[in-house]
């Protein structure tokens, strides 16, 4: 592979790093912030399971995203990915609600507009549909889980000290599931735009053949791991102590329900199983993890009687649906123009 190819991959690596630093931190934020789980344990679990999720099950959502627009030149992929990452960084700094998923979709639409390729309306509708159904599903799952956990706790009458031990283990298991689902569902945001223009060829190691796509997902997973190792601790401490103050048991419910949402929208096996029995399957689309988490928190708020429901959270979600893709599409369009006309790179074929 040429050095140029590697350079163009850096924006994807940056997206991966950002996924590890921010989204993985959402999974273990409360657990580490409240010191229920050590950072090192959380980091190891995150790295292993994000990478596993990405390699084993990441391709499904990548196809879903690819249906929107197949970025077919490496400099184009680089620009689209960089613009999504820049949108996330800029909006985060400005304190605006932002989601990697919505940023990458906006950036791809920007590429479609620039290159003149038509945006598949059906794919776009399907993606927009999951943005709405993701948080709603999160709220419903968290609502049910909340009552199940509360019933179980009342029934079992565990000593506070024993409950503490079970909660720690529960947070680690749910965290592993959350990391796996994150890798499976959201890694498409990181490497999806590179698939069509992948610089990798099949690689055989000890009799195993890794396809170019699998190698991409593996690299994405490692970049996320780097994000976890280098920056996520700071974010975890913020999530655990500032943002949404959750008790460890409530955090367990939120992680489990968020992970379930991401898993439902990422698992090819589940989709096939549902189709085989004649049930409608979930579309394999990247959904916003933070919005699924906010949906879950709202679900718990409703289960508690709706007294502490923060309607600003709902407004943030809706704002994220509109603002993030619009900003990302605009930045992507301008950046592609500069890339093509200033740096003389072919951004589409």
């Amino acid at each position: 592979m040429e050095i140029g190819g590697l350079i163009f991959l850096t924006s994807g690596l940056y997206m991966g790093w950002s996924l590890g630093a921010n989204d993985a931190a959402n999974i273990f934020g409360t657990a580490v912030g409240t010191r229920m789980v050590r950072f090192r344990t959380a980091a190891i679990i995150s790295v292993i399971f994000i990478t596993a999720g990405a390699v084993v099950s990441g391709a499904g959502t990548a196809h879903g995203l690819g249906a929107l627009g197949a970025v077919n030149a490496l400099p184009g992929s680089f620009t689209v990915s960089l613009c999504a990452a820049f949108t996330v960084m800029w909006m985060t700094r400005a304190g605006l609600p932002v989601s990697t998923t919505q940023a990458i979709v906006g950036a791809i639409v920007g590429w479609n507009l620039f290159s003149g390729y038509p945006t598949d309306q059906e794919a776009l509708t399907r993606i927009l549909g999951t943005w709405i159904s993701g948080p709603i599903l999160g709220a419903c799952i968290a609502f049910v889980l909340f009552f199940v956990v509360r019933f179980a706790l009342n029934r079992l009458s565990l000593h506070l000290i024993k409950l503490d031990r079970y909660t720690r283990n529960g947070l680690m298991i749910a965290g592993a599931f959350g990391a796996y689902s994150l890798g499976a569902n959201n890694m498409a945001n990181v490497v999806g735009v590179f698939i069509e223009a992948s610089p990798f060829t099949d690689l055989s190691v000890f009799g195993f053949t890794f396809t170019g796509t699998q190698q991409l997902f593996m690299i994405g997973g490692l970049a996320a791991g780097l994000g976890v190792a280098t920056y996520s601790k700071r974010v975890m401490m913020t999530v655990g102590s500032n943002l949404f103050k959750l008790s460890p048991v409530t955090a367990f419910v939120v992680i489990l329900s968020t992970a379930t949402v991401l898993f439902l929208f990422a698992s090819e096996g589940l989709a096939h199983a549902m189709e085989s029995v004649g049930l409608p399957s979930f579309p394999l689309i990247p959904v916003s993890q933070s919005q699924a988490a906010v949906g879950s928190i709202i679900g718990i708020g409703v289960a508690k009687g709706g007294r502490n429901l923060n309607l600003k959270l709902l407004l943030n979600i809706v704002l994220g649906w509109v603002a993030t893709p619009t900003v990302a599409a605009a930045i992507s369009y301008v950046a592609l123009f500069i890339m093509q006309n200033v740096f003389m790179q072919q951004v589409f074929t």
Binding site: T34, R35, M36, L160, I161, D164, S247, P248
Partner: peptide, 11 residues
């Protein structure tokens, strides 16, 4: 032994 970190203060 770093037990019940969340409710330690209360207990």
């Amino acid at each position: 032994e770093m037990l019940i970190p969340d409710s330690r203060g209360d207990v």
